[in-house]
Structure formats: C-alpha cells, structure tokens
Computed example of a mutant assay.
Amino acid sequence: MPENAIVTLRYGPYRSCGVVAHRTQRLEGLRALLEADGHTVEFEEIDDWDFVELIVNGEKIYQCNIKDLDFGGDGKLDDLCKSALTAVKEASKH
C-alpha cells in the first residue's frame, strides 16, 4: 500500500442541542491532520450513533466516539486525532 493512503472516515449521527444528526464539525480536525500528512479523506455516513471509524484498504484500523473528538480546530492538539494518524501511518506501511 502506498504511504499516502485513501482513508474512509465513517461516522454516525450524534445528539447536539437535542437534535440527532450527522455532523462533520468534530471531524474537521481529524481530516485536516490526515490531509496535512498527505492522505486522502473520504466521508461516509453510517447509522451507528456516536461512532467514528477509519478504514484503510478495506480494513478498520481505528474507532472512537465522535463526541470525544474536539469540536473544530486543526487536530494538532487532539490526542485522538494523533492516535488516528498513527494508526493510518502504520496501516500505510503494510
């Protein structure tokens, strides 16, 4: 697999202000961090509430609760974004 991977970022809806919907605001930092490292990010909505998973080469390599990600930002200060980037880098080596 090439070092710069195509990452499918699958995410579910979550409740905010009493409304359940698919939102990408909490994913922007993760996307920015991955794209800054040269990866291509594709979003895909799923039905699982509060869920985020990263898929590289058809394999799930990382998952977390979407509400644990920082809202907005560039992802550089979010430990979950850093962990996800490390997982993508490891998957890209294989």
Rank of each mutant, 00 (worst) to 15 (best):
T40S: 05
D47A: 15
E3D: 12
D50M: 02
D78Y: 08
H22P: 04
D48M: 10
D47K: 12
F71P: 06
I55Q: 03
T40E: 02
L69P: 03
H94I: 14
T86P: 01
G29F: 04
A84V: 06
K82P: 07
R23M: 13
A21M: 11
E28L: 13
T8A: 06
L33G: 00
C81D: 04
D37I: 08
P13W: 09
I55C: 00
V52D: 00
D50R: 11
H22G: 09
G72R: 00
Q63Y: 13
L9R: 01
D68Q: 10
I55R: 01
I61G: 02
W49R: 14
E44G: 09
R26V: 12
K82C: 09
G75T: 06
I46G: 04
E35R: 08
D74L: 07
N57E: 11
D48I: 15
F51T: 14
T24H: 01
L85M: 02
R31A: 11
L69Q: 06
D70Y: 13
S16E: 14
F43N: 05
E42Q: 12
L80E: 00
G72Y: 14
K67C: 08
C64I: 06
E28A: 12
L27H: 00
G75E: 07
T24R: 04
A21T: 15
A5T: 03
F43Q: 08
R15K: 09
E53W: 11
T8E: 01
R10K: 11
